[in-house]
Simulated scan of single mutants.
Amino acid sequence: MPRLFTGLEIPQEIATDLSMMRGGIHGARWIDVENYHITLRFIGDIDAAAAHDVHQTLSQIRRKPFEVSLETLGFFGGDKPRAIVARAKPAAPLVELQAQQERLLRRIGIAPEPRKFVPHVTLARLRAASAMAVADYLSSRAFVFSKRFEASRFVLFSSRDSVGGGPYVVEAAYPLG
């Protein structure tokens, strides 16, 4: 059973820039640069027939390429931080692409995504990192972080059943434009 999700790939030069944010926080498991992406829609573990239906459904999407802006460094988890992330601006074309995928996948019986869409690139997963350590990490990188790229396609990724962080394989690519 493949574990699938859709996403946007991060261009190599931006991934390299993001990788410079590594280090300086105890309890961080840094994501490999080649696995940086923005998840659009987590699909989950499905059988081959459902995976085929997902592919056919996603291939119907027609949208123009659009600009993605990575704007700030942040974290998820509140008092118990669980991830360091680079947040993407939730611009209309990005949000609309995600919403269209959500609608189409629900129509073919894929369970709804319970989490609100917050576009981001996960840089590190945290285990037992204190909120103070995360605050110190982020404050030492308090400059304005701004990277932009054009999304010219979205992809269907597969991953192995693991704690997260890859490796991810591009199963199919869907051009925009």
Rank of each mutant, 00 (worst) to 15 (best):
R3C: 15
L8A: 12
E9P: 09
I14L: 10
D17K: 10
A28W: 00
R29P: 01
I31H: 01
D32W: 14
Y36K: 15
I38N: 01
F42P: 00
D45S: 11
D45M: 08
I46N: 02
A48V: 12
A51E: 15
A51F: 15
A51R: 15
D53Q: 14
D53V: 04
V54M: 05
S59H: 13
Q60N: 13
F66H: 11
E67W: 07
S69P: 14
L70F: 07
E71D: 04
G74Y: 00
F75C: 02
G77C: 03
G78T: 00
P81E: 02
R82D: 01
A83V: 06
I84F: 02
A86F: 08
A91R: 01
A92G: 13
P93H: 14
L94A: 11
L94I: 13
E96T: 04
L104K: 03
R107I: 12
G109V: 11
G109K: 15
P112W: 14
P114Y: 07
P119W: 10
H120Q: 12
T122Y: 00
T122S: 05
A131K: 12
V134I: 10
D136P: 00
D136N: 02
F143W: 10
S146P: 05
K147V: 12
F149E: 11
F149L: 15
E150C: 12
E150A: 12
R153C: 06
R153Y: 07
R153E: 11
F154D: 13
S158T: 01
S159I: 07
G164S: 05
G165K: 08
V170T: 11
A172D: 05
A173Q: 14
P175L: 09
L176A: 08
G177Y: 08
